[in-house]
Simulated assay, not measured.
Amino acid sequence: MENQTIKVEGMTCGHCKSSVEGALNKLDGVDSAVVSLEDNQVAVQYDESKVSSSELNEAIEDQGYDVVK
């Protein structure tokens, strides 16, 4: 399992949190995704043989948020 912390701009509320966590948790290979609104980031634990970090970023951006690279 791989652990990655992704900086995300634009998340401000509980709906933002659930949107991002939900999108990531739907991906095959994601074990957990936990958003910290205070830190503007999401901690993701995933199987790198099933899902790539670029797919994680795309899932976040598809929800309307900006990934800080």
Score class of each variant (00 low, 15 high):
residue 7 K to T: 06
residue 17 K to L: 14
residue 13 C to T: 04
residue 44 V to Y: 04
residue 5 T to Q: 08
residue 41 Q to T: 12
residue 25 N to R: 08
residue 52 S to R: 06
residue 61 E to A: 06
residue 8 V to C: 04
residue 28 D to W: 01
residue 18 S to L: 12
residue 36 S to T: 10
residue 55 E to I: 04
residue 68 V to M: 14
residue 63 Q to C: 06
residue 45 Q to H: 15
residue 66 D to C: 12
residue 8 V to P: 02
residue 45 Q to G: 13
residue 42 V to M: 01
residue 40 N to Y: 07
residue 4 Q to L: 14
residue 67 V to C: 07
residue 25 N to M: 09
residue 32 S to W: 05
residue 48 E to M: 13
residue 20 V to I: 11
residue 29 G to R: 01
residue 6 I to N: 00
residue 11 M to H: 01
residue 51 V to N: 08
residue 29 G to Y: 01
residue 41 Q to F: 11
residue 62 D to F: 12
residue 22 G to N: 01
residue 6 I to H: 00
residue 59 A to T: 10
residue 4 Q to H: 14
residue 49 S to C: 02
residue 11 M to S: 00
residue 21 E to H: 00
residue 47 D to K: 10
residue 45 Q to A: 12
residue 50 K to Q: 13
residue 65 Y to A: 11
residue 67 V to D: 08
residue 2 E to R: 10
residue 24 L to D: 03
residue 61 E to I: 07
residue 26 K to L: 05
residue 1 M to D: 09
residue 41 Q to N: 12
residue 67 V to P: 05
residue 23 A to K: 02
residue 10 G to P: 04
residue 26 K to I: 02
residue 44 V to T: 04
residue 67 V to H: 07
residue 12 T to Y: 10
residue 45 Q to I: 12
residue 25 N to I: 03
residue 65 Y to G: 09
residue 1 M to R: 10
residue 52 S to D: 05
residue 21 E to L: 02
residue 36 S to E: 07
residue 20 V to L: 02
residue 57 N to A: 11
residue 33 A to N: 03
residue 28 D to L: 02
residue 59 A to S: 11
residue 66 D to P: 09
residue 19 S to E: 09
residue 34 V to K: 12
residue 42 V to I: 06
residue 6 I to Q: 00
residue 12 T to P: 04
residue 47 D to F: 07
residue 29 G to Q: 01
residue 41 Q to K: 15
residue 52 S to G: 04
residue 62 D to L: 11
residue 22 G to D: 00
residue 12 T to D: 04
residue 21 E to D: 03
residue 39 D to T: 14
residue 5 T to Y: 03
residue 10 G to K: 10
residue 48 E to S: 14
residue 64 G to D: 09
residue 42 V to G: 03
residue 31 D to H: 14
residue 64 G to L: 08
residue 31 D to Y: 14
residue 69 K to I: 14
residue 28 D to Q: 06
residue 6 I to K: 00
residue 65 Y to K: 11
residue 8 V to W: 03
residue 42 V to P: 01
residue 43 A to W: 08
residue 22 G to L: 03
residue 7 K to A: 12
residue 16 C to E: 05
residue 51 V to G: 09
residue 12 T to S: 08
residue 56 L to T: 02
residue 12 T to L: 07
residue 30 V to N: 00
residue 51 V to E: 05
residue 30 V to W: 00
residue 36 S to Y: 07
residue 19 S to R: 06
